[in-house]
Write a protein that binds this DNA or RNA. Structure first.
Lengths: 240, 240
DNA sequence: TATACGCAGCGAACGACGTTCGTGTCAAGG
DNA sequence: CCTTGACACGAACGTCGTTCGCTGCGTATA
């Protein structure tokens, strides 16, 4: 029960998650969990750019100053968010037969979590890797890849690459969706955006951009997560 | 000679780079190039977080308002910066024999450009891909991979993946370096930081993090750009 | 039972940010 | 000489993250 936010954050990083919180207090006090909930609410409904100390505090019917009793700073909220997302991933028992599918599945879970909260990948890419919830996912992926017989060094580097790629991929998707306007498209990239991009490529000067003009369709292709699956497969396939 | 910044930015995106600027005016007027120079100067010396309208303007001995006659907004400066960096990459003539080395070399060039300006990868990851200077690099990489006999669809997706990975990798490196304090280490990750990370991993609870404890060395390994070369090789190797 | 203490909560403010508005200023054209 | 138009800029607005110091309540002690 560390009362100092700095202490609480340190505990989340270095050691196990300590004891569970005590029972429900009398009224409805501000807690770290409620702050995390509110932050995720803001991101889910208004995007990561709208994640503000004030917007989080408003959802808790208070002012921004009240948050600093539970949280070190905004970066701390970022960590809490990513930790929460990682905490919801289900890690399968390592199976030497299907380890490639298992890894791809974990990556897809992480991808979908990021996409559910538009722009949150920016927080993920700016974070240290010592948060316990994140380490739990890293540990689980390590176990899977090692069960597949991959050398430890290759396994570690490949997992790092996968983390980075998932973050960058989802960030790109979120930015494109937000730029296109929040029309609430349930699919990743709208047809209008792709058509406009293709025509832009087609109108490039022919002498300097022959390949881009010729393969404008391929450069903008990828319904669903084909592109994602392609890259993850590319990385996973060569791990002997 | 578009006088409206919006017009100037649109010209940089859609068509060729128009005519060159006219000769030197009377005194020392503010130009887009000088703004780009100043912005890169700020990033190189103080990092991307210090890139501010005010800091750029200060280097030009003026106020922030003066920049808006040449630039749409701060995102526009981001584009100018990335465009400048991409512009300095040398793209080899595609050679079907050595195309893998050629691609790796271009990625390494991009990586080194990003690392020269700490944190600038954040701008790269938040950008549209229609800037002409960026498209030039994409075009050159496309030509190299296609010369290697790779299918157009695979080539396009692989190049996208490489771009994303280079950005995420360099961003992670820059953040780590800046967190460690700007001790001016000329190498990527200091020994102290790695040692501290290893000991932190080793102190994790044994029941929940066995693999992380066991392979703490591998998880933090990677002198120079071994990790980078590993991942790029992983992606490039499977492109038939 | 009365009182002192500790602390979560919060109003107000500070400095810095991106951006805009209206005014100044100076070279070229009539 | 005056007009004109484009460029430059001082000042300001609204918002951000963060800090300071007060308030009021619950608990433990005398």
């Amino acid at each position: 029960m560390p009362t100092d936010p700095r202490q609480r954050r340190a505990a989340r990083h270095a050691q196990s998650t300590a004891a569970a919180d005590e029972a429900a207090p009398r009224k409805r006090p501000i807690t770290v969990d409620r702050i995390t909930d509110a932050a995720l609410d803001v991101i889910a409904t208004q995007g990561y750019d709208a994640l503000t100390m004030r917007s989080v505090a408003a959802l808790l019917h208070t002012g921004p100053a009240s948050l600093y009793a539970h949280v070190v700073n905004k970066a701390d909220i970022d960590e809490l968010i990513i930790g929460r997302l990682c905490n919801q991933l289900v890690l399968p028992e390592p199976d030497p037969e299907t380890w490639r599918e298992q890894i791809s599945d974990v990556c897809a879970q992480l991808r979908d979590q990021y996409l559910r909260y538009p722009g949150v990948a920016r927080a993920a890419l700016s974070m240290v890797v010592t948060d316990l919830d994140v380490l739990r996912v890293s540990e689980g992926m390590m176990a899977i890849v090692l069960a597949g017989g991959v050398a430890p060094q290759s396994a570690a580097w490949a997992i790092d690459a996968l983390f980075l790629y998932v973050g960058a991929y989802t960030l790109e998707i979120s930015l494109g969706a937000q730029r296109q306007g929040q029309t609430g498209e349930d699919w990743l990239v709208s047809r209008e955006e792709r058509d406009e991009l293709v025509s832009r490529f087609r109108n490039l000067p022919a002498d300097r951009f022959p390949e881009t003009r010729r393969h404008a369709a391929e450069l903008t292709a990828g319904d669903g997560h084909e592109r994602f699956d392609f890259t993850v497969g590319l990385i996973v396939r060569n791990l002997a």
